[in-house]
Each structure stands twice: as structure tokens, then as C-alpha cells.
Design a protein around this nucleic acid. Sequence first.
DNA 1: TAATGTTTGTACCGATTGGTTTAGACTATC
DNA 2: GATAGTCTAAACCAATCGGTACAAACATTA
Lengths: 197, 197
Amino acid sequence: MPWEKSFNEDDALEKAMRVFWQKGYDSASIADLINGTGINRGSLYNAFGGKERLFIRALKRYDQDRKEMLAELEALDDPRRAIEGFFEHLVSTTLADEEHKGCFLFNTAVDISSHGEKVQGIVKNGVAEIEGFFRRCIEVGQARGAMPAALDARDTAKALLGLTIGIRVLGRGVYPEDALRALATQATQLVEGQPER
Amino acid sequence: MPWEKSFNEDDALEKAMRVFWQKGYDSASIADLINGTGINRGSLYNAFGGKERLFIRALKRYDQDRKEMLAELEALDDPRRAIEGFFEHLVSTTLADEEHKGCFLFNTAVDISSHGEKVQGIVKNGVAEIEGFFRRCIEVGQARGAMPAALDARDTAKALLGLTIGIRVLGRGVYPEDALRALATQATQLVEGQPER
DNA sequence: TAATGTTTGTACCGATTGGTTTAGACTATC
DNA sequence: GATAGTCTAAACCAATCGGTACAAACATTA
């Protein structure tokens, strides 16, 4: 048996993810994916089976990273720090990305009607889990007296989700840096007492 | 001189706007635009000169409607009612739209890097004007004592903009009705005193 | 060295893309 | 009725789309 291992499939998947992430499903052509991954046309079809299946795998991979990030933040066992950390990470990655790719999940959410059930399911589940992360943080924070008891955890979680989406969309290129930071600050202040001014 | 007037160009433009609005620039094919407008291929090119120019005209038209809506709300000369009216209108139109088109401006903002300067300019200006609308409402509301003086008008305006984007994106199909209403309520409560519970 | 199976490059497929052109049907003015 | 101008329908264009096929180049095991 020859060549017992293939090329670096995982690496190619991540590069393909970047292409879809930036261009979206329709605008990303096979040529883009070949250039982006560096692997050959035949290898790409042999390894991933086609454009749509590759897209789904790329989206799943992104969603997995998202899931792990939330788990790490929640493992801090400090709700205020978790939410602050979330928005710090959100803004810093948004600003550090010179390609202005935004969030793969939200980008796909905007085009969700042109996708099949599988993709729709991934997006809906991912969004719901982000909201759940916020809600649990708030509930725990309130139980420990670290957040205002007057907050409605479910509704405030939705507001934080909305602000997250806003930051990600505006981060695609319509907004200057300080404005994104201001938005993140507004989000964190929502769950903390207003600082005296 | 015969046939002194052409077909209903304005009507065709609005229908074309709907097609781009729902599908986006890339995913909308010429065939889609022909079906959507009901006019002939040749007429379309004769009247609008090509896909990209038609897109720009459609986006400008949408942006004009947006501008007029904000002007009407601001003419109420009642900042709280203006912001409430904005989010009421936002949620009701989002829910009433069976096609889940979202906001043409924000949809385009997500794909902004694939567009030329003209389109980018329209989007950036539109977003900035929405933010300006919120900021002026808050400033006037504070001056009249109708809104908490502790609010930072500029930052709160950004937060409202972010929530607006969140509602529009989630309204594309990933979110149930009551959640959108809850988001709008959160937005209006941001600029009003928290109701006792 | 021979055999095995992967990768690569390229040619090719039918379908569709955005866009142009042409011929004819139509309406209004002259 | 002749004419001028606008609409419709279709054919047509080169380019690109996603996807397949295939022969040559390759590294590894036997």
C-alpha cells in the first residue's frame, strides 16, 4: 500500500472555511476554493464530494470553534467576566481581521433562505446556543448578586445577541473601530450596574 | 412621434428592488429579474443599462424610502414616540414580510466588500443616518427631560442601531415572532426608564 | 524493480451566467 | 396609410458555473 496518508485534509478544510466565510456560498467559486485551499480540483472533489458538502463541513467546523469558545468562557464560572470576555474577544477578532469576514454564522443567517435544511439547522442551533450562553450567564450572575435582579434574563440575553450581531455586521466594513468598541461597552453595561459618570 | 410614454418604469424598478432585496446581488439572475419585473429582457437593458446599474438604482430607491420614513418619525417632534414608532414599524414589517427579506441595506452591508464604491457609499451613509436619527431623538428627549440624562446619546444610539440590525438579521428566518418583539421592547426600554416590575 | 493507490494537471461536459442583437408586433403621430 | 419609436420574443454571444474523466507524476510497500 502506497502513500498511506493523504494530504492535509484538515488544513484544506480550514482554508476552504475562510473562503466561504469571506465570500459566502454563492459568490465563492470552485476556482476560489482551489486557490484558497491550494489543493487540486480533483482532490477537492475526492476529499469533500462537492461544493455544498464542503460548505456544510466548513460551517460545522466554524460552529464547533464557536461552541468551544463559549464553553471556555462559561468554565470561568464568573458570569460578568464571561460576558466581558465574550465581547472583548468579539471586538478584538473583528478588528484584527483585515479581510472583514464578520461572523460565518451570521453571514449565513442573512442568506439562510437560499440554503437547505442542514445549513438552516446549524445556523438556528448556533444562534440559539449563543443566546443560551448569555441567558445562563445572567441567571447565574443574578443568583450570586453580581447582576441586577431587575433584569429579565431571557430578554436581556436576546438584547446581547442582537448587539453581537450588530457588531459583527457593522464590522464587515461600514463602521470605524471606536464605534465597535462603544457598542461592546454598551452591551456589557447592560448586564452590569451603570457606572457613575 | 409614437408611443410617447414607455411602460411603467417606476413600477418595474420597485419589483426589481424586491428581487435584489430578497436574493442579493449575486444570487439574483437576470432571469429572476425578468420574471420579477414582468418586463422583457431587452426592455430591462434598454431602461436600466445592466445588472449593476439596476442594482444601484434599486438600492437608492430603498434608501430613499428609508430616509422618508425616518423624516416622518422625526417630524412627530416626540422623541420617545419616534423611537417606539421606529421599532414598532421595524417589527411589524419584519413579521408581515412572508418572504423574510430583512433589510435591503443591512443585507447589502454583509456583502459590502464585493461591491463598488457607489454601493458602499450608499450603505455607509444609510447606516450613519439611522444612527444619527437615534442620536438626535435621544438628545432632544434628554433636553426635554423625557429620557434619562445619564445616557450617553452617541453610544446609546449605536446600541439601538445594533439592536435594529439584530432584529433585521434574525428576522430573516432564524427567530420566532415573540423573540423579535422582545428585542424591540428591550431597545425601547434602553432609552426609557425601566418599568417597575 | 514491480505493484499500488493518491495527487496533479488538464481537458472536457452540459448548463447557466450577464449581456447583445435582431426581427417582428404594436401604437401613436403625421 | 406611411412612418417613427417602443415593446416583445427569441436567437445568440463569450465566459463561467459546478462537476467529471483521465493520463501522467508520484511515493510507498512488497
